[in-house]
Amino acid sequence: MAETLLQVNNLSFGWPGQPTLFQRLDLQLQRGEVVAVLGPNGRGKSTLMQLLLGTLPLQQGSVSRHCGLGFVPQYFTPPFAYKVLDIVLMGRARHVQLFRSPSAQDHQLAKQALHALDMLAFADREFGSLSGGQRQLVLIARALAMACEVLILDEPTSALDLHHQDKVLTMIDQLARERHMAVIFSTHQPNHAHAVADRALLLGAEGRHQLGHCQQVLTAENLSPLFHLPIERISVPFADGHLETLVPIFHSLRERDRE
């Protein structure tokens, strides 16, 4: 039986004067598992991440953390002009003794994390001089340097081009399969969830949610009303076979097709 690293029981939350974001949510995140959290803006994806981390007080329910957690926020602005390598070394803070400087091993692990994301060449660059996508990759490298067992990512591909989206998704898959980490990430892209997640959590209106294996949850019947536009599962030829993916059918595309 797989080891549970993060457990959520009967979790409910709502901001004052606003509709409840989720009600009676139960979730077990197991070693080697990837869970994707999907939903429109304002449905509680980032709030859920804060509750899992413990940076936001619980209103109802419980969150049990059985190991160290790493977090990659959607946005991050450091208070000083840190170099990229310094930002990644911050991930080693809990491994460095009080009043001690990072060791040679800490530096090596930080550089390995940057190398894994093709960012080692930027190690001496000022973090603030990078593009939004490059900053996101550095923050992911910082989380990797922590050597945590659970990785929580808030929309990790939102500022990335297609190549680096693929690199981050591949990295998520490798962390789960090869390092046996548990990963939970939020996204607006159902095809990203389909590509790497084992299970998907859909956050709907009025506190409703749906959790299950991707093949059962990521369907046109569930996703289309969630995002208020048609989303279809299609099969495309690739190499010597076929691959399935999920495609949104935008209104502009439908209008253009009628012309």
Rank of each mutant, 00 (worst) to 15 (best):
V183Y: 02
Q165V: 05
V196S: 04
R254K: 14
L226D: 02
T157F: 11
K167R: 11
E126M: 10
G61F: 13
Q59E: 05
A147M: 11
A81G: 06
L223Y: 05
V236G: 01
D257A: 15
H242N: 05
G14P: 01
I87P: 00
Q23G: 03
S252R: 15
T77H: 15
E126W: 08
E178W: 11
T20R: 13
D166V: 12
P16L: 13
Q134H: 06
P73M: 15
L85I: 15
E126D: 06
P237K: 14
Q74C: 09
Q165E: 04
T219V: 05
L58Y: 07
E259Q: 15
Q165F: 05
F99N: 07
G128K: 14
H228Q: 12
L58S: 01
K167L: 12
L109H: 05
V217D: 01
L52A: 01
A116N: 04
F22K: 08
L11C: 01
D198P: 03
L120F: 07
V247A: 03
I87V: 09
G133E: 06
D86S: 13
A143G: 04
E259F: 12
H107A: 09
H107L: 14
A182K: 08
L175A: 03
L130H: 04
G42N: 12
G44S: 05
L223R: 03
R135V: 06
E206Q: 14
F13T: 03
S252K: 11
F13P: 00
E178G: 06
A193P: 00
E178Q: 14
Q23C: 11
G39I: 10
I140Y: 03
A123Y: 11
N191P: 01
S129K: 14
F71W: 14
S224V: 08
F76V: 07
